[in-house]
Each structure stands twice: as C-alpha cells, then as structure tokens.
C-alpha cells in the first residue's frame, strides 16, 4: 500500500481510538504485561515486592486484564489478515547481504532487548509514545520521538554492515 495511504488509514484508526476510548494505541505495554504474567507464575511474592511489577500484577491483579492487551491481540490478528490477503505469509528472514542468518537473529534479539528496555524507561515505544503521544502533541512524546530518530540515525553508520 502507498505509504501515505497507509499512514492516513493508521491515523484514522488512532483518531477513532481517542474519540471512542479516549486513549491511543500501543504495543510495548502488552509485552510488559506478558513479562509480569510470567514472573507471577514463578513468584507472586517477588512481583508484590517490586513497585514496578506490582503496579501491573500485584496480588489478585491479572496483568492481561487490560485495554492495551486486547488492543495488542487485535494487532496480531490485523497483521495476520493483511499478510494473508497480500500473500505475504511465508517463512522469511530479512537481513543485510553481509551477515549470516545466525548473526541476524542474534542482532534482532539484542536490538529488541535494547528497544524493550528503552521503551520502559521512556514509558512507551514508537506506538504508544511517538505515534499516539505525537498525535496528541504531548511535549515529552515529541522529545522521545526525536531521540528515537536521533539514536537510530546516529548509530546507523556504525552498524551499516548489518544492513547494506
């Protein structure tokens, strides 16, 4: 799909989210809640003793009982519908021409871990902060969005072997 058309479509969905539910879209929140769910299985006491974890899954609280989690489930289904309708559902590994598949998976995991850590520190990721916060003109969200782009552009030349 033309990127401008996809962007406008995305923007209309986000606008509906604000008009109906009074809130924006997200992605990392649901992953955080899944981490808390897993930690609850291991030790509820540990979750209760950590102020950050207990906010999501303190005693008697189900971290998955949340708007963002249902929204993220929808993202999975929406991605599947789009991918299936476009014939894009086949096992693939995208990587630059100069690295091996194994290296690519390692870097995907490392990059994901950094992103996950940064998203919690900044209270949201590209969806919840940069896109949703950006659209509501939240001051801090614009700062974080600029820093995401600055960080990626700043490091891009040094890691170019990964992609080009």
């Amino acid at each position: 799909m033309n990127p401008y058309v996809a962007g406008i479509g995305l923007g209309l969905v986000l606008l509906l989210a604000y008009l109906i539910s009074g809130r924006g879209l997200g992605a990392s929140g649901a992953l955080m809640r899944t981490v808390v769910q897993a930690e609850k299985v291991v030790s509820q006491e540990h979750v209760d003793n950590n102020f950050y974890l207990s906010k999501y899954g303190g005693d008697g609280q189900n971290p998955w009982h949340n708007w963002l989690v249902w929204e993220a489930l929808g993202v999975l289904v929406g991605g599947l519908i789009s991918g299936a309708s476009a014939g894009r559902l086949h096992l693939e590994l995208h990587r630059g021409p100069r690295i091996t598949a194994r290296q690519r998976l390692l870097y995907a995991m490392l990059g994901g871990a950094l992103f996950g850590f940064g998203a919690r520190l900044a209270r949201g990721c590209t969806s919840g902060v940069a896109l949703s916060g950006g659209a509501t003109l939240a001051a801090g969200s614009w700062i974080t969005m600029l820093c995401i782009f600055a960080g990626a552009y700043g490091l891009a030349w040094f890691v170019r072997k990964l992609w080009i």
Partner: peptide
C-alpha cells in the same frame, strides 16, 4: 535516554515492538 536507547535498538534489531508483532504473524523469524 529511553528514546536514544530505543533508537539504538531499532537500528541494531530492525524492528520496534509493534512492527515486530506484525512480523511474527507473517512468519518473520527475526
């Protein structure tokens, strides 16, 4: 600082959390 770390993660890993979820559903192993 969170934004900068996310930026580093983006260019090293190639995905942000939302796009990675979509990638998972279309069978992207990375």
């Amino acid at each position: 600082v969170g934004g900068l770390i996310m930026g580093f993660g983006f260019i090293i890993g190639g995905y942000c959390p939302g796009t990675a979820l979509v990638g998972v559903m279309t069978a992207r192993i990375d």
